Simulated scan of single mutants.
Amino acid sequence: MNIKYLSCLLFFIILVSCQQKQEKLHTQQDIYRYGTKNDSTIFYFNKGWEHILDYGQWTLSEKAFRKAVEFDSTFIVGKALVGKNTTNLNERIQILNDLNNSQIKVSEDDQLILEVTRITLELFNARGQNVKLDEDFISNFLATAEKNYRTFIHKHPNESYIKAEYIEVLNAIHGPKIALDSLHILTTPKQKKIPFFISYVATLESDLGNFKKALSIADDFNDQINNPNIPQPYVLYGSIYLKMDSLSLATSNLDKALQLDPNHIFAQRFKNQINTKLKIIDGID
């Protein structure tokens, strides 16, 4: 039997087995609190995830994570997310130092999230300071993220946004086909209706070259959002059109997204990719 086929088969056997365990746990799980007892803290923490992943509102996301920490100064997971979202390099460096020197005790499950976020901050800080990282830094980071997020979501299957992060990591490591199949297997019926998962299906379909299907899903996503002041539909359309080399349509959508939220990192990256393509085209001409 082909080794690659066997490894994929084993991967999905594990996913299905975990999904069965997830269904058993589903009714037993309440809202996970990430180490805080403050209701306002957990409310704004979840709002921060909602803003950034569902709606592409990076600025509002940062404000929500900061608000969460204001209600509970010992909320170390929330502070880590402030560090991940801030555009201030000096603040991010200080937050990483605070996390590394913190004496606050966190649970084993919270530590899974913190470990990944710490490495993320190391990566962001290195880029911001033009520090060269070890060649295996990214691969080790992704391996840790995959292991930690997988462990977490199988213990806490209702935590949709950590599950979203996990699917993104699977895409980075294993590619869009496995990420898409995993998304369908691991998400509950309720989670399948969450904006992020709908839009990410469109993203993965476009990565696979299924542009007609991706645009159809993007239309459904846009209809669900039904708000011209939300950036994410424009970012989704822009990313799909970029992959289709429809640069004019991609640009108009991404420009609209950045008008609504200039801090949308992915919209910025997509615009840079467009500019690079246009320079190449101009060079050929």
Rank of each mutant, 00 (worst) to 15 (best):
C18Y: 11
I178L: 15
L204S: 11
E62N: 14
N38M: 03
Q232R: 15
T86R: 08
E70S: 11
L247N: 12
I76T: 12
S17R: 02
K24C: 04
Q268S: 12
R33N: 13
M1C: 07
N148P: 05
A172Y: 05
I185K: 05
Y34C: 08
I119H: 06
K4P: 00
Y200L: 08
L258Q: 09
I274M: 12
I173F: 08
D54M: 05
F75D: 05
L180T: 00
L180W: 00
T86I: 07
Q20H: 02
S206V: 06
I95M: 11
E23R: 12
Q111F: 04
L121R: 06
P231T: 07
E115Q: 14
D54A: 09
K84P: 01
E159M: 06
D98S: 12
C8S: 13
P262G: 06
I104M: 08
D261N: 14
F137P: 06
L278C: 04
F211R: 07
R92L: 04
N38A: 05
E115Y: 02
Y5H: 10
F197R: 02
I153K: 07
Q259L: 15
Y44S: 12
L114E: 10
V77C: 13
L121M: 14
I42Y: 06
G283M: 07
F137M: 03
Y200Q: 07
T59I: 09
R150W: 09
V131Q: 14
L53I: 05
I119N: 08
F211M: 11
I162V: 15
V16S: 12
E122N: 14
I274G: 12
T74F: 02
L121E: 07
K193T: 08
Y234G: 05
G238H: 01
H184E: 10
A126P: 05
I274N: 10
H264W: 07
H154A: 05
R118T: 02
D134G: 04
G283T: 09
E165R: 08
G283N: 15
A164D: 00
D207I: 01
Y241G: 07
S252C: 00
I230L: 10
I178C: 09
N2A: 05
